[in-house]
Simulated scan of single mutants.
Amino acid sequence: MRPLIAAIDLSAIRHNYAVAKRCAPGREAFAVVKANAYGHGVREVVSVLHGEADGFAVACLEEAAEVRALDDQTRILLLEGCFEAVEYQLAAQLGLDVVVQGSEQAAALLAAPLSRPLNVWLKLDSGMHRLGFGEDELRHCHARLKGAPQVAELNLISHFACADLRGHELNERQLESFLGLLELDFDRRSLANSAAILTMPAAHMDWVRPGIMLYGASPFADISAHELGLKPAMSLSAKLIAVREVAMGESVGYGATWEAARPSRIGTVSCGYADGYPRHAPSGTPVIVNGQRVPLAGRVSMDMLAVDLTDLPSAVVGDPVELWGAQLPVDELAAACGTIGYELLTKVTARVPRRYLA
């Protein structure tokens, strides 16, 4: 078997959910499990949070159906709403909470013959300008939906654009826009994502939505997950499958972009971009071999990458390699690659076996 594994600590996910709840006392929390629980495995994550999570949030109906099959009671929030009119009937059968983010969705909902009314979340475009109603449009839609036979709860939701940038002026503007609708009769309100849960108590409202924090990564560039009390859930680990001597001046990898500045020992690792490791990771990006940091050497290949073991002369074939995890936070690797932890976690491909730790 190829020596590459994504080990997922389910107890860390439970811990991180508890952190979100402690940060927002008295509030309920939708655990965001879209995109296969950010690459961690939706079935396993939903199962471990069964009976603990107040609800789950997903992006589409297919994801919602998978979660409902695992939990027949908990609330499930459909974050982008229904894309076709017929989907409202299935949403009712599944007992979903549904976001309505535009006039077309509202009209389709009001025209739908449903087996039972839905909990509806009207989405306010408070400043991100991606989805949602403007304030005046939302007031009009609220009047149309309040008391409609298709609607059980009528709730309010919005999403921060810059909550990960503490002190950004848009955060205050978005909060003010959301609070500007307080006089409307909503049953529940939800605004806070992970970053706002951790640093913006005024945004907690009734329901919070922990996403990236659930998986032990930080939403902030300047605060580590460890500092936030979060535990990393995924560790991507491999092994050295070859070690060779390379003379000074010789190159390593595609494009010959890395040249040995001294006689060097080069290790080959059983992980590449087809597994989800970022192809654009530059030479020098840290990798952990036998508990010690060594630098990436040359371009990442589809199935392999190379590391410079010159300063680790004891390393041999079969030694363990951590690409990210407890010793190397995924956020640090992401920063070295000019991206974010979200992307790395969600891009671990299906060919990487997941091993679950209780």
Rank of each mutant, 00 (worst) to 15 (best):
A217N: 07
A217E: 07
S218C: 02
F220N: 07
A221N: 13
A221R: 14
D222G: 02
D222T: 13
D222S: 09
S224E: 09
S224D: 11
S224L: 10
A225N: 08
A225V: 04
H226F: 04
L228S: 11
L228Q: 11
G229W: 04
L230A: 04
L230C: 07
K231G: 00
K231A: 09
K231W: 13
A233E: 05
M234A: 13
L236A: 09
S237K: 15
S237Q: 14
S237A: 12
S237P: 01
A238M: 11
A238W: 02
K239T: 08
L240S: 01
I241K: 02
A242Q: 12
A242E: 15
R244M: 10
E245T: 11
V246F: 02
A247F: 01
M248K: 15
M248A: 15
G249R: 09
G249C: 03
G249V: 04
G249Y: 08
E250I: 01
E250T: 01
E250P: 01
S251T: 15
S251V: 12
S251R: 09
V252C: 06
G253D: 10
G253I: 06
G253M: 06
Y254G: 03
Y254H: 08
G255K: 07
A256F: 01
A256G: 08
T257D: 08
W258P: 03
E259G: 07
E259C: 10
A260F: 07
A261T: 12
A261V: 10
A261K: 14
A261M: 10
A261Q: 13
R262W: 09
R262L: 09
R262V: 12
P263V: 01
P263F: 03
P263W: 04
S264T: 15
I266M: 05
G267H: 04
T268K: 12
T268I: 12
T268L: 14
V269Y: 06
S270W: 08
C271K: 08
G272Q: 11
Y273H: 15
A274K: 13
A274I: 05
A274Q: 14
D275V: 00
G276D: 10
G276V: 06
G276M: 09
Y277H: 00
P278Q: 05
R279C: 11
R279L: 14
R279Q: 15
R279A: 15
H280E: 13
H280W: 01
S283I: 01
G284W: 08
T285G: 00
I288Y: 00
V289D: 03
V289K: 03
N290P: 02
N290Q: 12
N290V: 00
N290C: 13
G291H: 06
G291E: 07
Q292C: 11
Q292T: 08
R293Q: 14
R293K: 12
P295H: 04
P295I: 05
L296K: 03
L296D: 01
L296Q: 01
A297N: 03
A297G: 04
A297L: 05
G298D: 05
R299K: 11
V300K: 06
S301P: 00
S301R: 10
S301L: 15
S301D: 14
S301V: 01
D303S: 11
D303L: 12
L305C: 11
A306Y: 13
V307H: 02
V307C: 05
V307Q: 00
